[in-house]
Design a protein around this nucleic acid. Structure first.
Length: 246
DNA sequence: AAATGACTCAACCGCGATTCG
DNA sequence: TCGAATCGCGGTTGAGTCATT
């Protein structure tokens, strides 16, 4: 079932031999420079295909198999915070790829939330109200490039996608200075979260209604600033033992 | 046992952002 | 400064597998 596109590049499932060649190449030259990979490996595959195969399947640190309860738990919370930014979410769930998470979410979670049978109709999905990650002044020292953009990303997770890149500090300052009281509140909350990792919280909406539970230790200490989304209200600390039943 | 529908995973596509010359 | 090349992402789809009838 070999498929070949108009340019004669192979498509479809990867053979063991192709996998081996790609793996060897990445181990030898490292990740990146994907446009060179087809040349280096001699594979009749496009760079995209090579990159994807490595990221989603061949990387040695990939966890396969079922998602654990903890992972699902974390995924739900991260999705609430980040929306469909699968690569960001994947960066915070060790061993899971963005594709894995996306598949899992679309096939299992969407269904649970009333999606019903069949493929999720993603066009009908309303855009999640998300809290976008931005650097905070209390975190690690920052490095700026010639344009003033921060070069360091949040705690090791790196992405070249501008959507995931941190804002230039000038704009952060602007947003901070013009931000509401809630934004400062939120900053305080996240600081507090870092200090109190391991304690349980509940996300509440603006009516005080509980929207989900959260275990501090599972959330990476990344700063988030309120951007007006509905989950921006800092979670209340739980006073009962509900979360521990889970 | 066969048919069929549902589910899951892997891969492709298109697009926006970034980098480079 | 600008356009081409490249990268990385989210959305979508195809194909194999599983479950049910």
């Amino acid at each position: 079932m070999d498929r070949v596109n108009a340019l004669g590049v192979r498509k479809g499932a990867w053979s063991k031999e192709e996998d081996a060649r790609l793996k060897k190449c990445v181990e030898q030259f490292g990740e990146g420079r994907w446009h060179l990979v087809p040349l280096r490996t001699g594979l009749n595959r496009c760079r995209k295909s090579c990159r994807l195969r490595w990221l989603n399947y061949l990387r040695p640190d990939i966890t396969r198999g079922k998602f654990t309860k903890d992972e699902i738990d974390l995924l739900i919370r991260l999705h609430k915070l980040l929306g469909n930014r699968w690569s960001l979410i994947a960066g915070r769930i060790p061993g899971r790829t963005a594709n894995d998470i996306k598949n899992f979410w679309n096939s299992r979670m969407e269904k649970k939330s009333g999606g019903g049978k069949g493929r999720p109709n993603q066009k009908n999905n309303t855009k999640a109200n998300i809290i976008r990650p931005r650097p905070l002044s209390f975190s690690t020292p920052t490095i700026h490039d010639h344009r003033g953009a921060r070069l360091e990303t949040d705690h090791g997770h790196q992405s070249n996608n501008s959507k995931d890149k941190l804002q230039p500090s000038s704009s952060i300052n602007a947003s901070l200075s013009s931000s509401s009281k809630e934004a400062n509140e939120c900053i305080r909350w996240w600081s507090n979260l870092i200090d109190t990792a391991g304690e349980d919280f509940a996300f509440v909406d603006d009516k005080g209604e509980e929207k989900g539970l959260c275990t501090g230790s599972k959330i990476n200490p990344v700063g988030f600033i309120d951007d007006g989304s509905d989950l921006s209200v800092p979670p209340k600390k739980l006073t009962d033992d509900r979360s521990r039943l889970r």
